[in-house]
Design a binder for these strands. Sequence first.
DNA 1: CTTAATTGTGCAACCGGTTGCATAAAGTTA
DNA 2: TAACTTTATGCAACCGGTTGCACAATTAAG
Lengths: 338, 338
Amino acid sequence: MEKKLTIRDIAKLSGVSASTVSRVLDDSDRISAETKKSVLEVVNQYGYKPQAAARNLARQKTSAIGIIIPQNDMNIYSSSFFQEALHGVSNSLSQNGYDVLISSGNPTELDAIKRLISTSRIDGIILLRSVVNDASIQYLTESKFPFVLIGTCLENPDVYSVDNDNQRAAYDIAYHMYMTGKRKMAIIGGTKSSVFIQKRLEGYEKLLVEKGLPINQDYIKLENASEDYGYQSMLELLKSPSRPDSVLVMDDSICVGVMKAINESGVKIPEEIAVACFNESSFTKYSRPALTTISLNFYDLGYCAAKTLLSVLNNEPIQKGCRYVDHLLTIRESTVSN
Amino acid sequence: MEKKLTIRDIAKLSGVSASTVSRVLDDSDRISAETKKSVLEVVNQYGYKPQAAARNLARQKTSAIGIIIPQNDMNIYSSSFFQEALHGVSNSLSQNGYDVLISSGNPTELDAIKRLISTSRIDGIILLRSVVNDASIQYLTESKFPFVLIGTCLENPDVYSVDNDNQRAAYDIAYHMYMTGKRKMAIIGGTKSSVFIQKRLEGYEKLLVEKGLPINQDYIKLENASEDYGYQSMLELLKSPSRPDSVLVMDDSICVGVMKAINESGVKIPEEIAVACFNESSFTKYSRPALTTISLNFYDLGYCAAKTLLSVLNNEPIQKGCRYVDHLLTIRESTVSN
DNA sequence: CTTAATTGTGCAACCGGTTGCATAAAGTTA
DNA sequence: TAACTTTATGCAACCGGTTGCACAATTAAG
C-alpha cells in the first residue's frame, strides 16, 4: 500500500488551495469551470478519495447508518429476508455515499444501539421488527434519534416505517381462491396477537364480505404458529361436516403440518382443497404439489426503508407514518389444476 | 439529543487535561491510580464515549472491517449461512471495539472493495468464497490489504482462510453409514471442479479405503448440482444391478430430487437405502423421513475468521494459511430406523 | 544535601478534511 | 475613471480525539 495522498497533496499538484479542492469535490458553484476541470483531472489521475474519518469529523456526521442482525427467531420471515433486505438497504445508501454498519444485538439489541449511537458512529438506524413495542423503539423515540422500522407499521405517526401490506396480501390470495371457484376458505396459523396476523385476517374477511360470503368462525384457526398446530387444525377441518374447499396458511413452516394432514387423509389438492401459504421457501417450491405462495419483496423493503431514512436525515419533507411495498403472488399447482 | 460532551469537557469536569483523559481511557500505565479513578467516575457519570471519527482520524485507523453481502448464487450454502457467519464476525469484532461495515457488491464486488479501501473506511476485509481465484482476491493480495477468506482454503499459504473441513465432514458421514451396516455407498451431486467437492470425495474414498471397501466409479455421480441431476442419478442407481444401500448427497436442494426418485420407486428409507446430505434446511427437517445432515457451523466460521483478521491487524504471530472449524452431524430417520 | 532517575501530567502539534470570512480580480454602472 | 457588485479563491480556524516531548514533583542514589 503506497502512501495515501491528502487533499493538500492534490491542492499542490493542481496549483490551488486545499479549500478549492474540497469545493471542487463538493461541486460547489463558487468554483470556475476551468478550475474544476483541471482539479478533477488531477484527482482522477491519482485516484484521490477523501478520507472518511477526516470528512466525518469535519462535517460532524458519519455518513453511516446501523442495522442490528436479527436473531433467527424472526420465524415469520423466510431466511433470505435479512440478506435481501440488506441488499436493498445497501444499494440505496451507497448511491448516496452512506455506509451500512451492522452489529449483532450483543448482549442485547438495545445495548448494541446505544453503543453505536454513543460513539457517534451512525447518523440513523434501521430496525427489523415483528413486534410493536419494545425497548429499542422506545429508546430511539425518546432520544429522537432518526430511525426507520421495517416489518411493522406503528400506530404512532411520528415513527417512520416500511412494511408489506399484509391486509392486501391476504385479500389478494383470497381473491385468487375465489376466482378459481372456491367459496369455503379457511385460514390457519399464527396468533391474533400479532399485528400482521390481524391485518391478514382483515384482508381475508374483507374479501368474504365483498363477495357476500359468510364469515365462518370455524374456518378461522389462529391460535398458534407451530407445524403441529397446522397439522391438528387441518385434521379438524377435514373431519368437519362442512369441510372447507380452500385454506390460507400464514407461514410455510405451518404449512408443512397442513400438507401432512391433507396427504394422510388422501384428499386431492387442489380439486378438493386448494392450499396457499405465506412465505416462499425450499419447502413451498419443492413440495408436491408445489405451493402457491405470497412472497414479500424483501429487497424493496430494505430499499424503501433506506430511502425513507435518507429523506429524514436530509430533512426533506416526507410523508410520516407507514408506507407499503408490493408483494408477489406466485401461483403454483396447489391452487390451480393443470 | 442533548449536546455531545467532548474529551475537553470531561477534562475540565475532572480537573485534568484532555491528554490525561485520553490516557485514562486507554488505560495507560503512566497515569496514577487516583487520577484514573476520579476521571473514570466523571466519564461514567456523563456516559462519555470518544467520538469514533475523531479517534479514527488521530489514530489513522478505522477500527472497522468490511464484508460484501453475497449474492444468493452461493447455493452451496444454506440460506442462513450469511446471517450466522455475520453474527460470529460481529460478536468477535465488537468485543475488540471494531465495527462491521457491509456493502452489496455493487456494481461488482471488486468495485465495492475498492470503494471501501480508497476512502479508508476499513482496516481489513472478510470475504465469503466458494471459488479459488477471482478478481477480488487477486486485487487484495497484490495491494497487500489485510483480508481473510471464509469458505475456501487457498493453496497460497500467504492468504489467511477459514473453512469447514469438507474432507473430514464427508468422512464422518460415511463413517456413520458404515457403522449402521451400510457397505455400498454412493455419492451424488456437485461437480469435481469445485474444491470443496473434491475434498468431500477424498473423505469418502478415505473411509472406503480404511474399511477395505472397493471404490466403485458407478457410485460416484459428480457432474452437476441441480435437483434434476439428483433425480436422474438416483433413478439410475436404483435401476442398477448393484444398487447402493446408502447415498451421500452434496446439498439439500439436490437431495430433493434424490428423495423424489426414491419415493417414486417405493424403496424403503433407511432399511433399503439410507440417505444423508450436506446442509440443513427446512426441507431436510420437514422431509418424511427427516434427513440426516452434516451442517456446517457458520457462526464459528465467522467468529474464527474475525479473530484471525484481528491477529493480522495487530501483527500478532499467527499460523498462516488455512484453519478449520468443526461441523455437526445431525442423525435423523433417513439413516437410522427407529 | 545535591544530583540523578523515575513518575505523572500538560502543552501543543497533528490527523485530513470543511467552511466562514476576507480579499483580489473581473465586470457593471454612472 | 471612480465606486460598486459579483465572482473566484485562499487563509486560517475548527471538528475531537491522540501522542511526542517538556517539565514539575517525587523518590532514589551518591
